[in-house]
Write a protein that binds this DNA or RNA. Structure first.
Lengths: 125, 125
DNA sequence: TCTATATTTGCAACTTAGTTGCATTAACAA
DNA sequence: TTGTTAATGCAACTAAGTTGCAAATATAGA
């Protein structure tokens, strides 16, 4: 359904993404905000913010869902063909501002794709 | 530690991958083989087969771990820069025999990456 | 500003994927 | 054939995420 009311809870969640440019896991937010917000509330807000195109989500190799701010997305158009990069040293996940293009794939019609990269980030190199 | 004994249980699990060329989720195997094998056994065998390079694993958008046969992998070298394709109609996930290459990424050193594609497969088009 | 209404929140209980410790069973080398 | 060691089953557990419902709160309209 998306966000319909600008509640305090929504502001608190959004503040975390303003502070932090890296992707944040749902679990991390739940523990981080445990004194301010309830678990269910956080999951529900994240869902709605994703609906609205404010955030986008992806699964980590660990099976934990992560969210990051969308750059140029809204409710109808979501451009998420940018890769996510996880540093194997510090663990941080960032959205990369590069476009990965796929080769031609016979017998399949592609509608969307995600790229997940592992390696070392500038700080850890 | 990898597989050290060719037990019946290992054969039963491998048979499922012989029957099926698509990726299989851990949960699916657990229910499929519930009369023959215990849940823990299946998870442990999958882990070991992945260790040995017989299978490779990846996370679905649903947070469920899936496994597929490796083509040219062994314990030491694992080449998994082939994409996984999930059909949005039939839900099946296949390994594509195409190589996706990444553009040059400044400030990062890449060690591995995964590509996950959604769309329609030949059968469902 | 006040009020009615519909959305949002907190809570507790639940679901589901995956893990662990331990006693028993089964491979397999000698 | 047997002793050793890995593999298995079981039951209990963990951790991420979901759900139903009653109470709280944002907001449109009076």
């Amino acid at each position: 359904m998306g966000i319909v009311r600008k509640t305090q809870s929504v502001q608190i969640v959004l503040d975390e993404f303003r502070k932090n440019s890296t992707a944040i896991s749902a679990v991390h937010l739940v523990t981080q905000l445990s004194t301010k917000l309830n678990k269910s509330t956080i999951y529900r807000i994240l869902d709605k913010l994703e609906d609205d195109g404010v955030l986008h989500s992806f699964m980590g190799k660990d099976g934990v869902k992560r969210y990051a701010k969308c750059q140029n997305c809204n409710k109808t158009t979501h451009t998420d063909n940018h890769p996510h990069f996880q540093c194997t040293i510090c663990g941080k996940i960032n959205c990369l501002q590069v476009n990965v293009s796929l080769p031609d794939i016979p017998d399949y019609s592609v509608t969307s794709y995600q790229v997940f990269i592992q390696g070392k980030c500038k700080e850890c190199l």
